[in-house]
Design a binder for these strands. Structure first.
Lengths: 110, 110
DNA sequence: TTTACATATTCGAATATCCATATATAATGC
DNA sequence: GCATTATATATGGATATTCGAATATGTAAA
């Protein structure tokens, strides 16, 4: 993962919000991410696939749900970049977390 | 300047190299940046204009030369992002600095 | 095995990005 | 003024990105 690759990943509102939310909340499934961001399923899924292909995310299937989280072996400089964005987006991030909390019927799985 | 705007700026090899080199060396003029990166004048100039329009760079004309540097009032989170990229690109950055040092007839101005 | 739910992928259109080439502007020196 | 050097911008083509809509896959439960 090069810096340019990471910056391309984060240079899109949807992908940045996905990454910041997972950084704050830990692993989340696709339907939780859809609810928190208020975006369509194909849109979320497409961006998640892109982030996974770059090595930024890890995915795990549990039953019918697929959980994504920040890849645990991300290099330190990449984590620092995400942390800096978290600081800059503190307000919008807490709004995302509220939307997630407000989601009805969050899957409780495994 | 939002995080997505910054990441778009840094999501291109040429622009990232420009920013890292100026972060390391302080202000540089267009011809120095051309020599260090080995890229054409219009290409360098176009990317510099883009970085200036985003608020990432500041420019000053001194005689026939235009000097660019990292904008002094860049928010802290943005500087941190650039620092993280500097850490990740240490090798390529020092190569850039060598090319700059090897440039003949660097303008000594004002 | 049929149905329902969760997620992934394909397709085509709209838009954005990047480049090389050519040309324009701006400052300096004669 | 005219020539030279430094920098900026306009144009058009190639490629990449993003999206919505439609469809495919995968899992579980009836």
């Amino acid at each position: 993962m090069t810096p340019v690759q990471l910056f391309k990943c984060l240079a899109d509102e949807t992908r940045l919000r996905l990454v910041l939310l997972m950084q704050a909340e830990g692993e989340l499934c696709v339907c939780e991410l859809m609810a928190a961001l208020g975006e369509s399923q194909p849109k979320i899924s497409r961006h998640l696939a892109q982030l996974r292909n770059c090595g930024l995310l890890q995915d795990t299937r549990r039953g019918q749900w697929v959980y994504y989280n920040i890849h645990p072996s991300l290099p330190g400089w990449a984590s620092s970049v995400i942390d800096s964005a978290t600081n800059a987006e503190a307000g919008r991030l807490s709004a995302l977390r509220s939307s997630l909390k407000a989601m009805a019927d969050r899957p409780v799985c495994c």
